[in-house]
Simulated assay, not measured.
Amino acid sequence: MVRGVRGATTVNHNNENEIISAAKELVETMEKENGYLPADISHIIITTTQDLNAAFPAAALRKIKGYDLVPVMCAQEIPVPGSLEKCIRVMITLNTDKTQQEINHVYLGNAIHLRPDLALTNRVNSR
């Protein structure tokens, strides 16, 4: 079955190291929380808000073992007034036997405000 795994995180500054580090942490956490391998991934789409342009967050995947052959594309979010700033969003499309209810979407940093119902801390506390 093909499923999507969502994730988002934020950074404090439009800084190359911060963007790469945050994107790496997010993708690694998404993998850990869902138990898939890079070979299970069809593709990854990463978006950033307009205030993040110091680095391509996709560069973070080059630092994660096994992700060198995963197709990745970066894009920019629609600039909706009042939306969360300095945000990196990730959509991983993968093959899995998990149901939609078993997928763990990951929201870190200030991105927990996007989907507090799916934030790791809320899921762990409700188990």
Rank of each mutant, 00 (worst) to 15 (best):
M1P: 14
R3C: 01
R3V: 07
G7I: 00
A8T: 06
A8S: 13
A8I: 07
A8W: 00
T10A: 03
T10W: 01
V11F: 12
N12Y: 05
N12M: 02
N15L: 08
N15I: 05
E16T: 13
N17D: 12
E18W: 00
E18T: 05
E18S: 13
I19T: 06
I19Y: 04
I20Q: 02
I20V: 15
S21W: 10
S21G: 12
A22Y: 01
A23H: 08
A23V: 11
K24R: 15
K24W: 05
E25M: 04
L26W: 04
V27K: 00
T29V: 10
T29H: 06
E31A: 06
E31W: 00
E33V: 09
E33Q: 15
N34I: 11
I41G: 03
I41P: 11
I41D: 01
S42Q: 12
I44A: 04
I44Q: 00
I45W: 03
I45S: 08
I46T: 14
T47P: 04
T48C: 08
D51F: 11
D51Q: 12
N53Y: 14
N53I: 07
A54N: 11
A54H: 10
A55D: 07
F56S: 15
F56H: 12
P57F: 09
P57R: 05
P57C: 10
A58E: 08
A58T: 14
A59C: 05
A60M: 08
L61P: 00
L61K: 02
R62D: 04
K63P: 05
K63F: 05
K63E: 11
I64P: 08
I64R: 00
K65Q: 02
K65G: 03
Y67Q: 03
D68S: 12
L69W: 04
L69I: 03
L69F: 06
V70Q: 08
P71W: 03
P71A: 07
P71R: 09
P71K: 10
V72F: 06
C74I: 14
C74P: 09
A75N: 14
Q76K: 14
Q76C: 14
Q76L: 11
Q76R: 15
E77H: 11
I78E: 12
P79N: 14
P81I: 12
P81F: 13
S83K: 15
S83Q: 15
S83M: 13
S83T: 14
L84T: 06
L84M: 12
L84A: 06
E85S: 12
E85K: 15
K86S: 03
K86F: 00
C87E: 06
R89P: 01
I92Q: 02
T93E: 11
L94T: 10
N95T: 15
T96D: 13
T99A: 08
T99I: 10
Q100S: 12
E102S: 15
E102A: 15
E102H: 13
I103W: 02
I103K: 07
I103G: 01
I103M: 06
N104L: 03
N104C: 09
N104E: 09
H105T: 02
H105C: 01
Y107D: 00
L108I: 10
L108N: 09
G109A: 02
G109P: 02
N110R: 04
I112Y: 00
H113G: 06
L114E: 13
L114N: 06
R115A: 00
D117E: 15
L118Y: 03
A119T: 13
A119G: 07
L120Q: 07
L120H: 03
R123V: 06
V124C: 03
V124Q: 10
